[in-house]
């Protein structure tokens, strides 16, 4: 860890130095992130509806109870689970596979990387639109390709049928997210010191064993952290679903964040605040649990 060398004593002057260095970041985060969040959190305990903002009394937990009593909230919660777990699973393993394949130098690797990493350069919103266009039930190219290949007999309204919509948005999300994992895992793989492998080959370990016993343990902390960050991001950034289905049809792709957006557009800021606080609470609880399980707290 950090303290390989003796650290200078903690003095007032040092404290001032530390504070000054952390100040710029802290100011930004406090002013533009925490302050609005706290104000938003307060609204969750008020009757705060656009319909009449002239009276906004405190109503205790009323907004929370009303959200929790709603079946749609629970549907959104279940969908959130599916959305995060399935997306993450494929993003992770495909990304891992890609990173392993790209690990060793080969001719054209640079060029290949430049092209294959391209989804990373696009915004989730654009990717949503692009896939919405490709999944279109009439003019969508995916239907056309599947018809030509003889896999389907008639066009499928991918984003129109509750059975297909979630699969479709997840496919788009996987396409989008594999690159992120590939980049991150490649970086992690490169951090494994070659000496470790040398030691292992002396022992005559097979490639498979090498991977299990040398590579994986070494990059595990990194993997744990990027998986956590990714989970938070997949959950918190609804732009892809928002631009593909808006949560429809019939709420079948509603995740907790699109549900939140709907509350905001319905004008009930109080309830929106309550949904937001519930989402934040769940994420926090999950992260603490996750960090404990992966024992990240040690570092």
């Amino acid at each position: 860890m950090v303290a390989r060398h003796a650290k200078p004593a903690f003095t007032v002057r040092r404290a001032r130095f530390i504070a000054l260095c952390l100040l710029p970041g802290a100011v930004f985060v406090a002013l533009f992130t925490y302050y609005p969040m706290i104000r938003g959190a307060v609204i969750a305990f008020q009757r705060y509806n656009l319909f009449d903002l002239t009276s906004t009394p405190f109503v205790g937990l009323e907004n929370f109870w009303s959200v929790l009593a709603e079946e749609r909230f629970w549907t959104a919660l279940r969908n959130t689970g599916t959305w995060v777990v399935v997306s993450l699973f494929f993003q992770f393993f495909l990304g891992f596979g890609l990173a392993l394949l790209l690990r060793r130098q080969f001719r054209g690797r640079g060029l290949y990387q430049a092209w294959v990493f391209f989804p990373w350069a696009m915004s989730g919103f654009l990717i949503g639109l692009l896939w919405r266009w490709m999944f279109n039930g009439q003019f969508g190219v995916i239907n056309d390709l599947l018809l030509k290949a003889g896999i389907i007999d008639e066009r499928i309204g991918f984003l129109a049928s509750p059975g297909w919509a979630m699969t479709s948005v997840i496919v788009a999300n996987i396409w989008y997210g594999v690159t992120f994992f590939a980049i991150m895992i490649m970086a992690a793989l490169q951090s494994v010191p070659p000496e470790l492998y040398e030691a292992a080959s002396v022992d005559g370990a097979s490639r498979m064993r090498q991977f299990w016993h040398v590579t994986l343990p070494h990059i595990r902390p990194t993997l744990a952290l990027i998986v956590l960050l990714r989970i938070i991001w997949i959950l918190n950034f609804p732009d892809l679903i928002y631009s593909m289905t808006g949560g429809g049809p019939a709420g079948s792709t509603d995740i907790i964040t699109t549900f939140l957006i709907q509350q905001v557009s319905g004008g009930d800021y109080g309830r929106a605040g309550a949904v937001g606080m519930l989402a934040l609470g769940l994420l926090l609880a999950f992260s603490i649990f996750y960090l404990n399980v992966t024992r990240m707290e040690r570092s």
Partner: peptide
């Protein structure tokens, strides 16, 4: 909806 409209029109 079922008999006279495109299935895609759900959305």
């Amino acid at each position: 909806f079922k008999e006279a409209s495109p299935p895609d029109s759900v959305s």
